[in-house]
């Protein structure tokens, strides 16, 4: 194979912007992190609320929550992204839509990507939250209610603290997924990590170096996520409980 390895390519000045190619990569890396973390925080908040609503004894609320989950987890992520980026601005009130279209392109891409990833992931988080709550013994809810807790207090002090502990491992997968899924956002032109990798190939004709670097960067993110979630799991372990020490 006549491939010319050239790891020095990363230190060469990039074609534009007065930066090195490594700088481009690092910029994409930062965008991926910012996008995924902000989307993850929204997904956790929305997913927790929707997941709880799926378990409440009210047909309307739980029905609404079920519809939410089914919509966001059954439409392909890529289609959702196109809907948020291309269709949503047209559906907004005209002044708001125009303001969006006149904002800087990076902002448009970033916002659409963040909302898309957040809501897609929130449906999956909601399912984990629901299954966590449902896996608790039924008597826990009764015991809390019998002591005079209201239903919101029962969730706040009794059901959720245990349910959240139980779902840390599956939530870790969702957290990892959101970083990997963020690569889809390169399709609307957002220059995140994967897009910078591609751009590097176009400019330097060094695909191996470029994608090895991209792969390593994703690997670093995921290892950090995995270890921090593992740390969280051991920190919140309940003494004497099944799976505890």
């Amino acid at each position: 194979m006549g491939y010319n390895w050239n790891w020095g390519v990363f230190l060469q000045p990039a074609a534009s912007g007065g930066d090195t190619y490594l700088g481009w990569m690092f910029h994409g890396f930062k965008t991926t992190i910012a996008l995924s973390l902000s989307a993850w925080l929204i997904a956790l908040a929305v997913g927790a609320v929707v997941g709880v609503l799926r378990t409440v004894p009210n047909k309307w609320l739980s029905g609404l929550a079920t519809a939410y989950v089914e919509i966001f987890r059954n439409i392909p992520l890529l289609v959702q992204l196109f809907l948020w980026y291309f269709v949503m601005p047209e559906l907004l009130p005209e002044s708001l839509g125009n303001a969006f279209k006149q904002s800087n392109p990076f902002m448009q891409q970033f916002l659409s990507s963040m909302i898309c990833l957040a809501l897609f992931t929130s449906a999956r988080v909601a399912e984990q939250v629901r299954s966590g709550i449902n896996s608790l013994p039924r008597g826990q809810k009764n015991a809390a209610l019998a002591m005079g807790f209201t239903l919101p207090q029962t969730y706040r002090y009794v059901l959720l603290p245990m349910a959240v502990r139980l779902i840390v491992p599956p939530l870790t997968s969702e957290f990892l997924n959101i970083f990997k899924n963020s690569a889809v956002c390169s399709t609307i032109g957002l220059l995140e990590l994967a897009a910078q990798g591609r751009q590097l190939v176009d400019y330097t004709a060094q695909p191996y170096e470029s994608f090895i670097a991209v792969t390593l960067a994703y690997l670093v993110i995921n290892v950090v996520v995995m270890f921090s979630m593992r740390w969280l799991e051991s920190r919140t372990r309940v003494p004497g409980y099944i799976g505890g020490k």
Partner: peptide, 20 residues
């Protein structure tokens, strides 16, 4: 009902202490 329940103690077959 919450107020009423707070005045009536209840003990369950499976204890139902809060494990955390």
């Amino acid at each position: 009902l919450s107020k009423l329940r707070s005045t009536v103690g209840m003990v369950f077959q499976n204890f139902e202490l809060f494990p955390h």
